[in-house]
Amino acid sequence: TEWSVSLWGQRRAFTEHVERLAELVSERTNGEFTLNISYGGLSSNRENLDGISIGAFEMAQFCAGYHADKNPSITVLELPFLGVTSLEQESDLSMALYQHPAVVADLARWNATLLMPSPLPQYNLVGVGDAPATLADFDGLTVRATGGIGAAMETVGAVPTSMSATEVRQAMDSGVVRAVSFAPHAHMSFGTIENATWWTTNLNPGTVNCPVVVNSDALVDLSDEHREVLLGAVDEALDHYLSFYEEQTMAAWGPALEERGIAQVSFGDAELSAFRAAAADPAATAWIQQNTARGLPAQELYDFVTGLIAESN
């Protein structure tokens, strides 16, 4: 059996779990079951769920925030200030949510089964100019932040602007935006830190949720042995992803900041709780309201997620 896997961009920390999964599956079936990974050749990143739905490929990665209406149930994990503190927690939380019946049904509309997350750290800001010392300093700050994070930034007076990731570096160098919200690996690969002067260590405004899914029919059609191998390799692939992200990306992140003399800005508890109060609750209320209207058990999903976080913190 050969499966086609649709990713995008190029091989990076963000795709290491899929690469590892492919290795493990091939090893454990003596090459009888292989995953053929393509970076952008099979689909655009925003059309990956469509491709899964029609059966053009069997496995794909996407981000929930690319198209909230395609996958409203998992956007709960993109709400600002949920309070997730580690990649591992993000990973466990995602895996738990992916089993929730409402989430399973949501993705079943695309003939898709959620396999594993691609946990990303919080989208802290990298910026140029004077570093913000207090929340008041965000007033009037132009920032590249989309979706929920952008909405959260707006509550403290920042001015969110949308642009594609490839235009971000130039927009920042030229002053169109003064700050950019990304995960560390993206700050490094899109070059936002090259001319930056500050980074917020603990603003933790939220993150994006980017699952790997498989075509449900293809999963059923696998032989029992192959399916067992595939599903059994998920934990190991995720472990590899987490240690790769910690050891490669985060290990490079600190020195990269220091090398460039980027000031690391931390906010006090009082500041953060004020921010949370201003941004988190309205966002959650709005999310619950909108998704109840979509016919989702939104309150239940929100309570499920916040309950799990409270439990583990």
């Binding site: 739905s53 690319y66 198209h67 909230a68 209406d69 395609k70 989309t146 949308s162 979509r294 016919g295």
Partner: peptide, 20 residues
């Protein structure tokens, strides 16, 4: 058709990245 669902708000089953 994959982006259209008459039962959903704004008949939408697929939305844009920034302002939905």
């Amino acid at each position: 058709l994959r982006s259209f669902d008459i039962s959903q708000p704004m008949w939408s089953r697929d939305s844009s990245m920034d302002i939905g």
